[in-house]
Measured scan of single mutants.
Amino acid sequence: TTYKLILNGKTLKGETTTEAVDAETAERVFKEYAKKNGVDGEWTYDDATKTFTSTE
């Protein structure tokens, strides 16, 4: 399943996707990605669109 991440950081904005077996796995991948890029925001998830959003 393809999951999408929308980053709305103070210094980094953008989108990326990952293939994962479930939302929990995708969330771990995306949170590590955000951390590596210095984004520490509030997380939301929309199951209908398989989209995570992190907003600082």
Score class of each variant (00 low, 15 high):
residue 1 T to L: 09
residue 1 T to F: 13
residue 1 T to S: 11
residue 1 T to I: 14
residue 1 T to E: 11
residue 1 T to D: 11
residue 1 T to R: 10
residue 2 T to Q: 10
residue 2 T to M: 13
residue 2 T to Y: 09
residue 2 T to N: 07
residue 2 T to R: 12
residue 2 T to L: 14
residue 2 T to C: 14
residue 3 Y to P: 02
residue 3 Y to W: 06
residue 3 Y to Q: 02
residue 3 Y to E: 02
residue 3 Y to A: 01
residue 3 Y to D: 02
residue 3 Y to L: 02
residue 3 Y to G: 02
residue 3 Y to N: 01
residue 4 K to M: 07
residue 4 K to P: 02
residue 4 K to I: 12
residue 4 K to A: 04
residue 4 K to D: 02
residue 4 K to N: 05
residue 4 K to Q: 05
residue 5 L to K: 01
residue 5 L to R: 00
residue 5 L to S: 01
residue 5 L to E: 02
residue 5 L to G: 02
residue 5 L to F: 08
residue 5 L to M: 04
residue 5 L to I: 03
residue 6 I to Y: 06
residue 6 I to R: 05
residue 6 I to C: 07
residue 6 I to G: 01
residue 6 I to N: 03
residue 7 L to T: 03
residue 7 L to W: 11
residue 7 L to E: 01
residue 7 L to F: 12
residue 7 L to H: 03
residue 7 L to G: 01
residue 7 L to V: 07
residue 7 L to P: 00
residue 7 L to N: 01
residue 7 L to K: 00
residue 8 N to E: 08
residue 8 N to C: 14
residue 8 N to G: 04
residue 8 N to H: 10
residue 9 G to W: 15
residue 9 G to V: 05
residue 9 G to T: 09
residue 9 G to A: 06
residue 9 G to L: 07
residue 9 G to H: 14
residue 9 G to N: 05
residue 10 K to D: 07
residue 10 K to C: 14
residue 10 K to R: 13
residue 10 K to W: 13
residue 10 K to I: 14
residue 11 T to C: 15
residue 11 T to H: 14
residue 11 T to R: 10
residue 11 T to S: 11
residue 11 T to F: 14
residue 11 T to M: 12
residue 11 T to Y: 14
residue 11 T to D: 10
residue 12 L to I: 13
residue 12 L to G: 08
residue 12 L to V: 14
residue 12 L to M: 14
residue 13 K to W: 11
residue 13 K to Q: 12
residue 13 K to E: 05
residue 13 K to A: 08
residue 14 G to I: 15
residue 14 G to A: 14
residue 14 G to Y: 15
residue 14 G to F: 15
residue 14 G to P: 04
residue 14 G to S: 14
residue 14 G to V: 15
residue 14 G to L: 15
residue 15 E to C: 15
residue 15 E to A: 08
residue 15 E to R: 07
residue 15 E to V: 14
residue 15 E to W: 14
residue 15 E to Q: 10
residue 15 E to S: 11
residue 15 E to Y: 14
residue 16 T to L: 15
residue 16 T to H: 14
residue 16 T to W: 15
residue 16 T to S: 09
residue 16 T to P: 02
residue 16 T to F: 15
residue 16 T to R: 11
residue 17 T to Y: 14
residue 17 T to R: 07
residue 17 T to M: 09
residue 17 T to C: 12
residue 17 T to Q: 09
residue 17 T to L: 09
residue 17 T to V: 08
residue 17 T to E: 09
residue 17 T to D: 04
residue 18 T to A: 09
residue 18 T to R: 04
residue 18 T to I: 15
residue 18 T to K: 04
residue 19 E to K: 13
residue 19 E to M: 14
residue 19 E to I: 15
residue 19 E to V: 15
residue 19 E to S: 10
residue 19 E to Q: 14
residue 19 E to W: 15
residue 20 A to T: 05
residue 20 A to K: 02
residue 20 A to P: 01
residue 20 A to M: 03
residue 20 A to S: 06
residue 20 A to L: 02
residue 20 A to Q: 07
residue 20 A to G: 03
residue 20 A to Y: 02
residue 21 V to R: 12
residue 21 V to I: 13
residue 21 V to N: 12
residue 21 V to Y: 12
residue 21 V to L: 13
residue 21 V to T: 11
residue 21 V to G: 10
residue 21 V to C: 13
residue 21 V to E: 12
residue 22 D to I: 03
residue 22 D to G: 03
residue 22 D to H: 04
residue 22 D to F: 03
residue 22 D to Q: 03
residue 22 D to V: 02
residue 23 A to D: 05
residue 23 A to F: 14
residue 23 A to H: 10
residue 23 A to L: 11
residue 23 A to Y: 15
residue 23 A to W: 15
residue 23 A to Q: 12
residue 23 A to T: 09
residue 24 E to F: 10
residue 24 E to H: 10
residue 24 E to T: 10
residue 24 E to S: 11
residue 24 E to A: 14
residue 24 E to P: 09
residue 25 T to Y: 06
residue 25 T to Q: 12
residue 25 T to N: 07
residue 25 T to W: 07
residue 25 T to R: 06
residue 26 A to R: 01
residue 26 A to G: 01
residue 26 A to M: 01
residue 27 E to R: 12
residue 27 E to D: 05
residue 27 E to C: 15
residue 27 E to K: 11
residue 27 E to L: 15
residue 27 E to A: 12
residue 27 E to P: 00
residue 27 E to F: 15
residue 28 R to E: 07
residue 28 R to W: 08
residue 28 R to L: 10
residue 28 R to S: 08
residue 29 V to L: 11
residue 29 V to R: 10
residue 29 V to F: 15
residue 29 V to T: 10
residue 29 V to C: 09
residue 29 V to W: 14
residue 29 V to E: 08
residue 29 V to K: 08
residue 30 F to Q: 00
residue 30 F to H: 01
residue 30 F to L: 06
residue 30 F to E: 00
residue 30 F to A: 02
residue 31 K to G: 02
residue 31 K to T: 04
residue 31 K to R: 15
residue 31 K to P: 00
residue 31 K to V: 06
residue 32 E to M: 09
residue 32 E to K: 07
residue 32 E to S: 07
residue 33 Y to K: 01
residue 33 Y to S: 01
residue 34 A to Q: 02
residue 34 A to S: 06
residue 34 A to D: 01
residue 34 A to M: 07
residue 34 A to K: 02
residue 35 K to T: 09
residue 35 K to S: 10
residue 35 K to A: 12
residue 35 K to P: 00
residue 35 K to Q: 11
residue 36 K to G: 06
residue 36 K to D: 10
residue 36 K to C: 11
residue 36 K to N: 12
residue 36 K to I: 12
residue 36 K to A: 14
residue 37 N to S: 10
residue 37 N to E: 09
residue 37 N to K: 13
residue 37 N to I: 14
residue 37 N to M: 15
residue 37 N to T: 08
residue 37 N to Y: 15
residue 37 N to G: 05
residue 37 N to D: 03
residue 37 N to A: 14
residue 37 N to V: 15
residue 38 G to N: 09
residue 38 G to Q: 06
residue 38 G to I: 03
residue 38 G to E: 05
residue 38 G to M: 06
residue 38 G to P: 01
residue 39 V to R: 03
residue 39 V to N: 04
residue 39 V to A: 05
residue 39 V to S: 04
residue 39 V to W: 14
residue 40 D to W: 14
residue 40 D to C: 13
residue 40 D to I: 13
residue 40 D to L: 12
residue 40 D to K: 10
residue 40 D to H: 13
residue 40 D to E: 13
residue 40 D to A: 11
residue 41 G to D: 04
residue 41 G to F: 07
residue 41 G to Y: 06
residue 41 G to Q: 04
residue 42 E to D: 12
residue 42 E to V: 14
residue 42 E to C: 12
residue 42 E to W: 12
residue 42 E to P: 05
residue 42 E to I: 14
residue 42 E to H: 12
residue 43 W to T: 02
residue 43 W to Y: 03
residue 43 W to P: 01
residue 43 W to E: 01
residue 43 W to L: 08
residue 44 T to V: 09
residue 44 T to L: 07
residue 44 T to D: 08
residue 44 T to G: 06
residue 44 T to N: 08
residue 44 T to R: 08
residue 44 T to P: 00
residue 45 Y to E: 01
residue 45 Y to T: 00
residue 45 Y to S: 01
residue 45 Y to H: 01
residue 45 Y to P: 00
residue 45 Y to N: 00
residue 45 Y to A: 00
residue 46 D to G: 01
residue 46 D to P: 01
residue 46 D to H: 06
residue 46 D to V: 05
residue 46 D to C: 09
residue 46 D to W: 03
residue 46 D to S: 06
residue 46 D to E: 06
residue 47 D to P: 14
residue 47 D to T: 08
residue 47 D to F: 09
residue 47 D to L: 08
residue 48 A to S: 12
residue 48 A to Y: 10
residue 48 A to E: 12
residue 48 A to C: 10
residue 48 A to T: 12
residue 48 A to P: 06
residue 49 T to L: 07
residue 49 T to Y: 04
residue 49 T to N: 07
residue 49 T to V: 05
residue 49 T to K: 06
residue 49 T to E: 05
residue 50 K to E: 02
residue 50 K to I: 01
residue 50 K to V: 02
residue 50 K to Y: 08
residue 50 K to N: 07
residue 50 K to W: 05
residue 51 T to F: 01
residue 51 T to D: 00
residue 51 T to H: 01
residue 51 T to W: 01
residue 51 T to G: 01
residue 51 T to Y: 01
residue 52 F to T: 00
residue 52 F to Y: 05
residue 52 F to W: 06
residue 52 F to H: 01
residue 52 F to V: 00
residue 52 F to G: 00
residue 53 T to K: 06
residue 53 T to Y: 13
residue 53 T to R: 07
residue 53 T to E: 05
residue 53 T to G: 02
residue 53 T to M: 10
residue 54 S to M: 15
residue 54 S to K: 03
residue 54 S to C: 15
residue 54 S to A: 15
residue 54 S to Q: 07
residue 54 S to I: 15
residue 55 T to L: 07
residue 55 T to A: 06
residue 55 T to H: 07
residue 55 T to W: 09
residue 55 T to D: 08
residue 55 T to S: 09
residue 56 E to H: 06
residue 56 E to Y: 09
residue 56 E to L: 06
residue 56 E to W: 09
residue 56 E to S: 06
residue 56 E to F: 09
residue 56 E to N: 05
residue 56 E to V: 08
